[in-house]
Amino acid sequence: MSCLQVENVSCRYNGRDVLEQLSLTVADNEIVCLLGASGCGKTTLLKAIAGLQPLANGVIRLGSTLLDGPETNVPPEARQIGMIFQDYALFPHLTVAENVGFGLTQSDRPARQHQVNQALALVNLEGLGERYPHQLSGGQQQRVAIARALVCKPKLMLLDEPFSNIDTQVRMKLILEIRTLLKQQGIGAIFVSHSKEEAFAFADRLALFRAGHIEQVGQPEQLYRRPQNRFVAEFLGGVNYLTATVVDSHCVQTALGRVCGSEPHGRAIGEQLQLMLRPQQLQLEHVQEGGWEVLEQQFLGHHCRVVFTCAGQRIEASIGEPLAGKRARVTVAAHALVLFEPLP
């Protein structure tokens, strides 16, 4: 069942098209990340869903409720959507409890206090209700913003770069905490980021944006391992391209030798294509003679970056331990082959 449906939405900003005929769905209790570079339209879509950006055309539905469409525009405060901002947007002159309860105007004081206490407990901030935002860490301030959004019991949560101001050492911990919290509360969410690491850790599905449209939607692993085009492949991580000739239903011939996939690739025998290889898909073994020349090695803690030459081309690999010498035998780990048409 879909929590949110965005259908053929277009938006204009400062006289130019920012979104063009864009469609997206979010299932109940699903977290979808809008991933892309700055200025590609991610935040514009988030604002349109929140009711802060008018549509040029298209419709937006939350469950069975039409939020935007011909002659329909539900105001932001009536959409049952919570929004969490990059800068937290807390009131500095209000306490934590007052910030969380700010939107509970329809409740009496005891009921409001009970709801605030429940929300603070959900985000592990019990006992901090009397503090002010400046007395909290960045991670704690973000938890206050989350509690403020949750206290109104939204049907959908929107998160705009919510982790960019959090220290690196606590960011992943906070990401996992918020993901667990949203799942426990049964709330669907749309999360905007330009960081693929955050997206991989937080989202159930990614929608990769480029210049106002979506290039590919799918599970993070699917987009990483089976990108539909070069833009998706290169945005999500390092890539190598090798000229490849199709020799049968599973294999291609390259400068590294015959490379076979774990399933049929669907290409015709004899086609001249380019094989995409992630650095992690290359396996290197030191040899005294033969093999390929190693040009660079860089130890990066959790892996070692190695650059070697292959038929005059620089190829990058990622391996667990540094090589002992300057020559290496190279093999390709089993995987489903990704083949692209040659560049013109």
Rank of each mutant, 00 (worst) to 15 (best):
Ser2Trp: 10
Asn8Glu: 11
Val9Gly: 04
Ser10Thr: 15
Cys11Ile: 12
Cys11Arg: 13
Ser23Thr: 07
Leu24Arg: 10
Leu24Met: 13
Ala27Met: 02
Asn29Thr: 05
Asn29Cys: 03
Glu30Lys: 06
Val32Glu: 09
Val32Arg: 08
Leu34Met: 13
Leu35Ala: 07
Gly36Arg: 06
Ala48Val: 04
Ala50Val: 07
Val59Gln: 14
Ile60Arg: 00
Ile60Gly: 03
Arg61Val: 04
Leu62Ile: 11
Gly63Leu: 05
Val74Ser: 02
Ala78Gln: 15
Arg79Pro: 07
Gly82Cys: 08
Met83Gln: 06
Ile84Lys: 01
Phe85Lys: 03
Ala97Glu: 12
Glu98Ala: 14
Glu98Lys: 15
Gln106Phe: 09
Gln106Lys: 14
Ser107Arg: 15
Ala111Glu: 13
Val123Gln: 00
Asn124Gln: 10
Leu125Asn: 04
Gln135Cys: 09
Ser137Cys: 00
Gln141Thr: 01
Ala145Trp: 00
Ala149Val: 10
Lys153Asn: 12
Leu156Asn: 06
Met157Phe: 07
Met157Ala: 10
Leu158Trp: 11
Leu158Phe: 10
Leu159Ala: 05
Ile166Lys: 00
Val170Asp: 00
Ile175Cys: 09
Ile175Tyr: 07
Gln184His: 08
Gly188Asn: 03
Val192Lys: 00
Val192Gln: 05
Val192Glu: 06
Ser193Phe: 03
Ala199Gly: 12
Ala201Lys: 00
Ala201Phe: 01
Phe202Asn: 06
Ala203Ile: 08
Arg210Ile: 11
His213Ser: 14
Gly218Trp: 04
Gly218His: 06
Gln219Ser: 10
Arg225Ala: 15
Pro227Lys: 08
Gln228Lys: 11
Gln228Cys: 14
Val232Ser: 04
Leu242Cys: 09
Thr243Glu: 13
Asp248Tyr: 02
Asp248Met: 01
Leu256Lys: 02
Leu256Ile: 11
Gly257Thr: 10
Arg258Gly: 02
Glu263Val: 09
Gln272Thr: 08
Gln272Ala: 13
Gln274Val: 15
Gln274Leu: 09
Leu277Asp: 06
Pro279Glu: 09
Gln280Ile: 14
His286Lys: 02
Gln288Leu: 14
Trp292Asn: 10
Leu300Cys: 12
Gly301Ser: 08
His302Gly: 12
Arg305Val: 13
Val306Lys: 06
Glu316Met: 06
Glu316Trp: 10
Pro322Ala: 02
Ala324Lys: 11
Lys326Met: 10
Ala328His: 02
Val332Glu: 01
Ala333Asp: 13
Ala333Trp: 12
His335Gln: 14
His335Ala: 13
Leu339Lys: 04
Phe340Gly: 03
Pro342Val: 09
Leu343Met: 08
Leu343Gln: 10
Pro344Ser: 13
Pro344Gly: 12
